[in-house]
């Protein structure tokens, strides 16, 4: 009872990275709260997958195995989790901020009338004192996220309602094995007895999933462009530099919204979080949502015509100038000096 639950997603017979990252964070929180970490694993033909989870410190894995659970559908997954939560009364529930998690978590929050915070960049345990009611709350989940166009960072709490629900984007939390020999318990849910026809009014007719074409998350060097790059055409300069340096190309949300780059390259709070050894920010102003996704870069070079761009404050090197002038020179002098 009152444990931390993580909803785990399955991708190509593997547990999704974001779920393992949440388990890693969940274990830290569970240790602080002296409670157990439990995982939920729903899908079709998933026997044995639970063994990928225990080493992250998972005490209990709840599995539901049924043909109708894959591909993901909102209603059957919601129903199983609702049943489980009603019985187990978790204090915290964590979901990946993925197409699945962002579809599922709000449905559960609504049905349970509890609070949910989307796209958290940090989760901590803390206390709260409410002056109005003179009530002290302990061991609350601090759900921390940039808000309101990135101009502020908000700490959100749910003092009264349980579970405290949060979604977190892939790559935001670190993934770390807790103990290779850790052993948890498997609990199988008899999902068939929960379902009725009304859970299957939505049907998947066709599905085309692409393997990840872009591997920005693990790239050592990233050349990222913002709105200041100016056009899709100018983004080619970034690709040229990336090719020479063996880097991946990333983009800010503004650049993606403007159509300069694809969505899967978006770095930031509502995109991917990266930790490269070198981040070259081209024409990126550096709103906090963007910085939330790249602030752990070991080194940052900012190229911007505006010497007051916020990103310059976290940059190791600031080149004040135009990318169309700077990038070709970087390529030229890299080639010259690397020989």
């Amino acid at each position: 009872m009152n444990n931390i639950f993580v909803y785990c997603e399955i991708e190509d017979r593997e547990i999704a990275d974001v779920s393992l990252e949440l388990l890693t964070k969940g274990k830290t929180l569970a240790n602080q709260l002296s409670c157990k970490l439990e995982a939920i694993l729903l899908g079709s033909d998933i026997n044995g997958l639970e063994n990928q989870l225990y080493k992250y410190g998972v005490d209990v894995v709840h599995t539901g195995d049924d043909k109708r659970l894959s591909p993901y559908l909102t209603l059957p997954h919601t129903k199983i989790i609702m049943e489980l939560f009603a019985k187990e009364k978790p204090q915290v529930g964590l979901f990946g901020a993925t197409s699945v998690g962002r579809d599922l978590a709000p449905r559960i929050a609504s049905a349970m009338k509890c609070g949910l915070t989307a796209d958290c960049t940090s989760l901590e345990i803390g206390e709260h004192y409410d002056k109005k009611t003179d009530t002290k709350y302990e061991n609350l989940l601090y759900q921390i996220r940039p808000a309101f166009g990135g101009n502020i960072v908000a700490t959100i709490i749910n003092p009264e309602t349980r579970p405290q629900l949060a979604t977190v984007r892939e790559g935001v939390m670190k993934m770390e094995v807790y103990d290779e020999a850790y052993k948890g318990e498997l609990k199988k849910i008899n999902v068939d007895e929960l379902f009725d026809d009304s859970d299957f009014v939505v049907k998947v007719i066709e599905r085309h999933m692409e393997s990840k074409k872009v591997n920005i998350k693990n790239a050592g060097i990233i050349v990222a462009g913002g709105y200041g790059v100016g056009s899709k055409e100018n983004f080619k300069l970034l690709y040229n530099l990336a090719e020479v340096l063996g880097a991946e190309v990333g983009a800010s949300r503004a650049a993606v919204d403007a159509g300069f780059s694809e969505h899967e390259r978006q770095i930031g709070q509502t995109g991917i979080t990266v930790r490269p050894k070198l981040y070259i920010a081209c024409g990126i102003s550096g709103q906090i949502q963007h910085r939330a996704g790249m602030t752990d870069s070991s080194m940052v070079i900012s190229i911007n015509t505006d010497d007051k761009a916020p990103i310059n404050q976290i940059a190791d090197y600031v080149i004040t100038g135009d990318i169309s002038e700077t990038i070709p020179k970087m390529i030229k002098y890299y080639k010259k000096n690397s020989k």
Partner: peptide, 17 residues
Amino acid sequence: PTKVKKIENVVFKAKES
């Protein structure tokens, strides 16, 4: 159910660039 406990204005930890 969600309450805002704290709002922080974004302060840059300026690096020596």
